[in-house]
Amino acid sequence: MTGKLFGGLIVLTALVGGVAMYWLQVYGYYDAVPASDMQNDVQLTLLVNGQAEPILYEDFEAIDSESSPIRYRACFTTSMSEALLTETYEMLEKAEPRNAPKWFECFDAKEIGLSLENGEALAFLGEKDVLYGIDRIVAILPDGRGFAWNEINACGEIAFDGKRLPAHCPPRPTE
């Protein structure tokens, strides 16, 4: 009898722990990011000087987490034309969106990735080193829907692996 009780307690503890871990990963660590009245929510990097500049957008919706710098996801719409965007802002040849939690319905990484692969969507550098070693990437579809996410850049990969930084990388910030 004691063995069955003890075994049942182990199974119950594992089940509660699994449910708690799932909830924390999918819901618990994410916070909504409020729009900041057209200030700096959506930025693209200018071709002219390499500086990030806010663009026109509406319907901004975003989530982020303090637990990881690459959990940021955002959705928005823009009325800016593809011609204006491609002539003004730094485009990326390759961009791969990261999955968002299923409850953040506006961000569908598969749809965005397929659109980027097919050449329907345009990928831009949103902001270089939004955090050290992390770039913000922005993709815009022909219908004006836009999406943003954070990605580890080349210098970040080296720094986070604990390797010595090459000369072209900025120095790590002091804690």
Rank of each mutant, 00 (worst) to 15 (best):
V130M: 11
I134Y: 13
N49P: 07
E87T: 11
P69A: 13
D59T: 05
S79K: 11
T88F: 12
K94N: 05
L141V: 01
A62V: 05
A74Q: 07
L114G: 01
K128N: 10
I63V: 11
E90N: 01
A83P: 00
E105Q: 12
G156S: 11
A100V: 05
Q51Y: 07
V48P: 00
Y89I: 01
S68H: 15
E96Y: 08
E127W: 01
A139E: 02
Y72N: 04
V48F: 11
K102N: 09
K94G: 00
L116T: 08
Q51T: 11
S65L: 07
L84G: 00
T78Q: 09
D64K: 09
C106W: 10
C155G: 09
A74N: 06
E87L: 07
T86S: 14
K94C: 00
F104N: 03
Y72I: 02
L84M: 12
K110N: 13
E66M: 12
P97Q: 06
I63F: 00
N49M: 08
L141P: 00
I55Y: 04
F60H: 08
I158S: 02
I134E: 09
M91K: 14
E87A: 10
R136C: 05
E53L: 06
P142R: 05
S79D: 14
G126T: 06
E66L: 12
K128S: 14
G156R: 11
V48A: 15
K110H: 12
Y89K: 03
L116W: 13
L122H: 11
I140K: 02
F124N: 08
T45L: 10
E87I: 00
D135V: 06
A154S: 14
A121F: 15
I134N: 06
A52P: 13
R136Y: 03
D59N: 15
E66N: 13
G133N: 02
G133W: 11
L84R: 09
I134V: 15
T45C: 09
V138N: 07
A109G: 05
S81D: 12
F76N: 03
G146W: 01
